[in-house]
Nucleic acid binder design. Structure first.
Lengths: 161, 161
DNA sequence: CTATTTAAGGATAATTATTATCCTTAAATA
DNA sequence: TATTTAAGGATAATAATTATCCTTAAATAG
């Protein structure tokens, strides 16, 4: 069970968009080139972000993407779910219904115990992702990325935004 | 990103094995029939449990599987990892290395910030699964499953164990 | 000793999900 | 008007999941 590589891509894209000055847009082309990923396929992932209202777009030259909300109001969960979907990692097929000892009219009152436990773990995962915002990420990156590289990357982006 | 259906199967199988008296084994055939799942494929999942030392086996008539440890010492994480592997759900391809502003000899000191956050969420998931044992599951099932069905299921199993 | 039952594991096939690529359309803009 | 862009449809390539079938060797019952 592995997340799509698009998740990694859009998280990094959002980090870049987070550093963009107001009223600037960055194109799929620039984002794909910056991260060294295929433009057409990245485009699909960015469309998912757009549908999820995490980014907004404009067309034409100097068009592209920008964040739709302040960085403090965009969580990792928002971004991950936009690409990966909101479904749970554990799907309960209710195999307890196949128990040969069950009467045909047996009716379950609660979800399966196994599923409840697995879903609790899912929720712990979600909860953790919900607790981290893009703002937090930018803060961490600002500390981790050498000042030199931080500056040149910003300039690279601004030459295209 | 969805867990294998084998995860659901083996969790239910372990619940059944947890109710087995000492020195009894239950075969793949019985477990597959009880849960209404394909015997051959379930067998692969049970082999994984065996390799993970969660269950132990014996051959021949009246052979099959039994738990290798007390129920309090088998966690959901043990079982899930046996089938699903121990890898993380987020794989970092380190796309920051593709940043065109990087000098060729640039060397990262820490793992990528994005990955660290995603891995924290993975760990929250694992941690939750590690906190629940087979013993806990059996306790919950004992409350959820009607006494009638509980009894008849036990008898069904014992007729084959 | 023999026939049967069983788990283990190899080989392979079918199905589904992921990872793309290409093309058309319509909007923005220079 | 020509160019640039996102959106979205269609399709293909690759990989993961979900099986099925077969052989081998160990345990056991007769």
């Amino acid at each position: 069970m592995i997340l799509k590589n698009q998740v990694e891509w859009v998280l990094h894209c959002c980090a870049i968009l987070a550093g963009l000055p107001k009223n600037h847009y960055l194109s799929t082309k620039a984002l794909a080139e910056f991260h060294g990923v295929p433009k057409e396929y990245l485009s699909k992932a960015l469309q998912s972000l757009s549908q999820a209202k995490i980014v907004e777009t404009t067309l034409g030259p100097s068009g592209g993407y920008r964040l739709a909300r302040p960085t403090e109001e965009i969580t990792f969960l928002d971004i991950v779910e936009a690409v990966e979907g909101k479904g749970r990692t554990f799907v309960c097929n209710n195999i307890r219904q196949n128990n040969p000892c069950r009467s045909a009219d047996h009716c379950d009152t609660k979800p399966c115990s196994v599923a409840r436990i697995m879903w609790d773990a899912d929720e712990a995962w979600r909860s953790k992702l919900r607790s981290v915002t893009l703002s937090d990420l930018v803060e961490t990156l600002a500390q981790d990325v050498p000042a030199e590289l931080w500056k040149s990357s910003f300039e690279w982006v601004m030459a295209r935004a």
